[in-house]
Design a protein around this nucleic acid. Sequence first.
RNA 1: GCUCGGAUGGUGGAAUCGGUAGACACGAGGGACUUAAAAUCCCUUGGCCAGUGAUGGCUGUGCGGGUUCAAGUCCCGCUCCGAGUACCA
Length: 944
Amino acid sequence: MEYNFREIEKKWHQRWVENHTYRVTEDESKKKFYVLNMFPYPSGAGLHVGHPLGYIASDIYARYKRLQGYNVLNPMGYDAYGLPAEQYAIQTGQHPAITTVNNINRYREQLDKIGFSFDWSREVRTCDPQYYHWTQWAFIRMFESYYDRRADKARPISELVKAFETAGTEGLDVACSEELAFTAAEWNAKSEREQQETLMNYRIAYLGETMVNWCPKLGTVLANDEVVDGVSERGGYPVVQKKMRQWCLRVSAYAQRLLDGLETVEWTDSLKETQRNWIGRSEGTEMRFHIKDSDVEFTIFTTRADTIFGVTFMVLAPESELVPQVTTDARRAEVEAYLEATKKRTERERIADRRVTGVFSGSYAVNPMTGEAIPVWISDYVLAGYGTGAIMAVPAHDSRDYAFAKHFGLEIRPLIEGCDVSEESFDAKEGIMTNSPREGMTGCGLVLNGLTVKEAIARTKAFVKEHHLGRVKVNYRLRDAIFSRQRYWGEPFPVYYKDGMPYMIPETCLPLELPEVDKFLPTETGEPPLGHATRWAWDTINKCVTENSRIDNATVFPIELNTMPGFAGSSAYYLRYMDPRNDEALVSRRADEYWQNVDLYVGGTEHATGHLIYSRFWNKFLFDLGVSVKEEPFQKLVNQGMIQGRSNFVYRIKDTNTFVSLGLKDQYDVTPLNVDVNIVSNDVLDLEAFKAWRPEFANAEFILEDGKYVCGWAVEKMSKSKHNVVNPDMIVEKYGADTLRMYEMFLGPVELSKPWDTNGIDGVHRFLKKLWSLFYSRKGEFLPTEGEPTRDELKSLHKLIKKVTTDIENFSYNTSVSAFMICVNELSQLKCNKASVLADLIVLLAPFAPHLSEELWEKLGHTTSVCDAQWPVCNEEYLKEDVVKYTVSFNGKARFTLDFPADADNATIEQTVRGHEASQKYLEGKTVKKVIIVPRKIVNLVIA
RNA sequence: GCUCGGAUGGUGGAAUCGGUAGACACGAGGGACUUAAAAUCCCUUGGCCAGUGAUGGCUGUGCGGGUUCAAGUCCCGCUCCGAGUACCA
């Protein structure tokens, strides 16, 4: 009887749906295990064969854990808000909601074919009001919170207000955009508007002025990668740097905790490293400088306080507020021209074209250590957004300062013994200090000469503190997240405006649903697309008015027209899966305490500095509120590799319709053309299929080699235009889901990026057929019988149990597929038909090939799903060998092998080897210096 | 530029703590069965050399050194490839 995978897979898919096989509830009697994949954005192109890689890997793990007796949560959902659906809407008028639902349905159809153990009753979609209710809720909580640095957690803003009322900013240590100082009396004297304005400085979700790439013609903010050569990528409209009021999240307040948390999770070192770099902690010193003959003061940040005696100029960022203050009248025109010029350059241009530019302000600053007057320059190599937007320049020991000094002919003053700064700066933090201070300089008491750089930094820090010249400061590169998008297809903000200040819509009014609009473009007045939805604004506000007495009934309040960015909905979805239909809370206490956090998270590295940072931030915030019980959301993280396309090429001879095979192409003048990989097999083109592929090839002619047309190939991104997309549906149709699952795992380590190559899938398919033939003869007889397995059969089985168990734990699925192949080959050779052996084999296979396993499990007489079977345990007894082969080598060179009883002792082994006739040839006339015996493996004789 | 990975047959990839390469699979070649095809099964398959043959010898994990009885694995110095990051003071 044949292995009829189509029938089997259809049957079991239905059974699983009918029996709710994969539904999971909080079962206190069992240990939990939470497996999660990064949920997909349902794109219009559907799934290609690379998408399921991570899902299969985690599904295998989930099924394995379930077989080990765990209560496994393995949910799936959709990151449904996103730009492509909106762009499509702009072009076609098709509402994004419709496109999205269609795409989701298509995804679901494709996913269902692969046999995942997802609990679909827990599905979430970020665009579902029931879902984004809690995204909006979290935003409101962030608005209503500030970050208390002393307690190192978020607290209700009402507490901060109370503190202001009684003591002003006195004695507070809180995260803020700008250090403010006021007394209780001053606070109490502020108007409501002023108080609200002040609170913005502290809220975790706040409205802030930030620099953005603004495209006036498109009416939206653009990300850096959407701007090319100063114009928008779409349309080619000019883009300018502009300060805009945008919603921001104070992620920076969590920088240290985000860094510390990395120590507690099991992620790859490279991913942790990426996040560490992104957070960019740097310990340094802030020092105050004042401008000569003026009372203007400013602060700089440096990690090299030791180089204070080598400062030969100062630099301000062009955006710095100090620029107008330090610019002298004589220099004003030139400075303004420079500011104008830099404003026009986008961030991207600055990076691409790194020429040295700058302008002298006319003022001099005073070095606090030496009293020297040093010129203050303005240059765009200093960033306004990092540190204080001002630096002390030490050209001898910083390459950027060096380039600037060379360009403008400024002094370069080396401070480290023996360093050569004639060609380049000496940036390394090593060496012995000199010239600090230089001979004859009027000192202030600080002497660094003779110290190492490290010592000098510490000494200077202490000195600065002692003399109140500044303070020791830790800076982070991590910036607050800009949270506003001028887009339609995203979560609306639960925000309305009164007197120009934002207020939160009462939580009882949530979810604030995304309104219908008739156009998806910005309004004529330049407002985001939501500006088209005026009626909705009215209705919503009115609804709130009746439910919230604080709002004056007679007024119409403008609402927030921006929507939230993509990462809003994906930041806490793993919590929602625990309790997805709860209308009272994001997640119930009970579900949260049961499921805790994600034990195993699988997804791509491309989210290293996006989703995986935001999500950790979001979770920490919820942890502070007492909503999430774990501070880190994802305990273990596995990054699956990308599956690239393997493109095939045919070579057309120029100006003809003749195609030449790969080996002969160099003899002609040819143009390579991407050919559909689905009509190529082992790089050999199916000529008839090619002619039928496109009308223009209908009468193509070929120059063959050995009667075949051989195609060229290359690894490229999987995309329609390259004709290298392989659709999982096709593979499932041809070979079955179980083959697809096993083949994807067999392809190589899950973490590795590799090109998809359908060649080779036959090997895996053959394996499943072979397995089937252990159960059914060709004539259709059912082979398994009761009876005691032989020692060889047990050995083969238990070898497999051991291998597969450790392999799954290590995510080494490719080698466990190999182990299955070996075992089935052995059992087949042994003509094993013992039901007990086959039953264990089936359980081991169940995570990999669930449909086939279910079918055979049933055939063996079981009435329950194989999912509820028990994972077999390896009995080491069966693995023991009677005889062990030792490799005998001389001076490390292997010569022959000898068999020994497994329990032979070293003395016997040594004696036998020395006495063995094959040894004589090597030992003749030589003395054995040493004998090394590696247990059960090697005997090595070291001879003189 | 910096950081982190990686380099093993025609191909994808195996190889615990350093233990004597190339598991498993594909492809290729040969054979069996068959009228034929498909399917299935068996043999060979890193390179070179010797032998009718069983087999034996040499060489071999990007390159050059080193440590060791023993190196794909450890150390030093290169080359190339990939990923991330980009004026962070």
